[in-house]
């Protein structure tokens, strides 16, 4: 990550726009207690936390720059969504779908765009509307399966 992904200016811009970055070396004894508390098992191990230290999103494994940006944006969007900051979450999901529509994170963005709009306004038809878009745009994704109960006869 330090050699390929993190040096890229768009990656830096994405991270600093939404978060304070903090990094820990898992080979150092001084980090052992913290990593035990985080139930750390594999690297790179990424967590999105709010200012109180509550973990709101996580992923692990190497991702090249476009995939990392899209995944990180989905993380920040879900962190906003869990805090019921619907407008902020929606803006980020739309950004992922606009700029990173071919990434592995994009189906998640479309799934949760529907959830975000539904949570903001339960009377709207945005949940089913966005999930219909999901079936059309990402028919083989895991997130299509997650809404597949809506496809039952």
């Amino acid at each position: 990550m330090d050699a390929v992904t993190y040096p890229q200016p768009p990656v830096v811009a994405t991270v600093v726009a939404h978060a304070v970055p903090v990094q820990f070396d898992n080979s150092k004894a001084e980090n052992k207690e913290l990593l035990s508390r985080l139930h750390h098992i594999w690297t790179p191990d990424l967590r999105v936390m709010d200012g109180s230290g509550s973990e709101l999103y996580r992923w692990d494994g190497f991702l090249p720059p476009p995939e990392f940006i899209a995944r990180a944006l989905c993380g920040f969007a879900q962190a906003h969504l869990r805090r019921r900051e619907f407008e902020k979450a929606e803006a980020i999901y739309v950004d992922v779908l606009t700029r990173f529509s071919t990434t592995y994170a994009a189906p998640e963005a479309l799934y949760y765009l529907g959830v975000t709009r539904y949570r903001r306004d339960p009377q709207s038809d945005e949940l089913l509307s966005q999930w219909a878009n999901l079936r059309s745009r990402y028919p083989t994704s895991e997130y299509r399966v997650k809404q597949s109960f809506k496809e039952l006869p």
Binding site: N26, M49, G53
Partner: peptide, 30 residues
């Protein structure tokens, strides 16, 4: 390059001050 902090409590405090999240990255130097 990303300017990483290395103190979680200090990062959480800064996040509260700047109304941002904290992005934690645990890495292995090998």
């Amino acid at each position: 390059m990303i300017e990483w902090m290395h103190d979680l409590d200090a990062a959480l405090k800064r996040a509260r001050e700047e109304s941002k999240f904290v992005l934690v990255d645990v890495f292995n130097p090998g």
